[in-house]
Design a protein around this nucleic acid. Structure first.
Lengths: 154, 154
DNA sequence: CATGAATGTTAGTGACACTAACGTTCGTGG
DNA sequence: CCACGAACGTTAGTGTCACTAACATTCATG
């Protein structure tokens, strides 16, 4: 993750120019890049963060529970948990109450790592929102919530 | 492109819940899906549309010119132009003035196809923005433009 | 006219969203 | 009580998109 396509911004087709869906994609791209780059400084990604955050907030959970909470597909969660266990941030143990399940538990080191990621994310968020006033940020959040709410439950 | 992860929206970690960058990614995801699905009904994708639109607006162009205008990498543009020529929407011919270049030209059929895609896109855009009032849409566009402008030229 | 830059091309990487299929384990209805 | 279907974890694979590296051809400039 180094450069990107958005720096020079040559003459762009006019019909695309002001399209909210295009602007949204552009903006989301910048946000994603900022966040991704920050997390990468600690060899982490969105998935790692989301998983650790869910574990801290809701306590130990099965993989399918984590999949629900994070939106990560259970198939992709396998590799994520592999990573996190390999780094000692999480423990995967068979659930004695339901032997189909794995109980995923946050370790102390995992909790510490999550705290470090939190700092990074707050930083990225601040940098991303820099051009907006507090009122603008609230407004943006409101509008995005409307859109997300409308399209998330059909 | 059929289902997606956003329908049930289970209990999500609170620290992620209201984060503009997360909301932005979610919203962009919905928009992308809407647009992508619409375009897919005519076996097209974002790249095809962007290329055709750029050609109509700026006239025949080289591939690297198109790359600049659309933001598509020249390496990816090769396949895009391959597709479009295979479908007769575009003609690729060596540029006599500069034999390194290919001159890409929109065909009549390409123009017709673009018109069809335009309808689809307008439709997707309308559906995406359905929950917002005209004032809200203007506001969203304004905020997104601020963000994009700030992050596109460092 | 030699050197370096631009152009198109091929190949490949990596993140992410998503599907299909399979074995194991559990819960339930008959 | 047990057969059957559902849930769980896992493996493998697909498709889109952004992006890099390397190469041959052609052009432009010094």
């Amino acid at each position: 993750m180094e450069s990107w396509h958005g720096h020079d911004e040559a003459q762009v087709p006019g019909r695309l120019q002001g399209l909210p869906s295009r602007l949204l994609n552009l903006a989301a791209g910048y946000a994603q890049r900022l966040v991704g780059d920050r997390l990468a400084t600690l060899d982490s990604r969105k998935w790692h963060y989301a998983t650790l955050a869910a574990l801290e907030e809701f306590g130990p959970d099965s993989q399918s529970g984590l999949s629900d909470r994070t939106g990560i597909y259970r198939s992709d969660l396998v590799a994520t948990i592999n990573d996190l266990t390999a780094r000692g941030l999480v423990v995967r143990a068979p659930d004695p109450d339901d032997r189909r399940r794995n109980a995923i538990t946050l370790t102390d080191e995992g909790r510490r790592h999550l705290k470090r990621l939190d700092v990074l994310l707050a930083d990225a968020e601040a940098e991303f929102l820099a051009p907006l006033s507090p009122a603008d940020r609230a407004e943006l959040t409101r509008l995005l919530k409307l859109l997300v709410a409308h399209h998330s439950n059909p």
